[in-house]
């Protein structure tokens, strides 16, 4: 399974829409088999989506993301786990171990979003009663 993470300064990039670099990790049975970092061309939202689909990305873990990009990714069949923060190595390990939903990986405001949207966005995805979503399937 190919997991992509926008990176900046060793951490998850604060905003997916304007991220410059992407770490693509091949994860098999909870272990990272290979990883590479690629530059993201500045080609706007449709460009971002085709950049990910061209690389056959299955999962995207990112920080803040616009609705527009999130919807386009969903329509392209890419599962996204947005509003995540932290050091890249720790985030990959948390994803492999199914603990990405822990509060220390959530961007500020995520709790408020969860409460407001009754689990429609972050809550649903971040594993409230659905932790297994974050386990590598």
């Amino acid at each position: 399974m190919k997991v992509a993470i926008p990176i900046w300064d060793g951490r998850i990039s604060p905003l997916m829409d304007t991220a410059c670099y992407l770490l693509v990790a091949d994860i098999d049975e909870g272990r990272v088999v290979s990883r590479e970092t690629v530059g993201i061309p500045r080609a706007g939202i449709p460009g971002h989506v085709s950049f990910l689909t061209d690389r056959h990305i299955d999962v995207l873990i990112c920080g803040a993301i616009s609705h527009q990009l999130e919807r386009m990714l969903a329509a392209s069949g890419i599962r996204s786990y947005p509003w995540v923060r932290g050091e890249v190595g720790e985030v990959i390990a948390a994803y492999c171990n199914g603990v990405l939903q822990n509060d220390n990986f959530l961007l500020p405001g995520c709790g408020r979003r969860r409460r407001r949207e009754r689990g429609q966005r972050c809550g649903r995805r971040m594993g409230f009663g659905a932790r297994k979503l974050f386990k590598e399937e």
């Binding site: 604060p14 920080g63 923060r85």
Partner: peptide, 14 residues
């Protein structure tokens, strides 16, 4: 919190 984690602006990175 780190300001970029709260602000997530288009100019944070570059």
């Amino acid at each position: 919190q780190r300001c970029c984690d709260v602000f997530h602006a288009s100019i944070c990175e570059t």
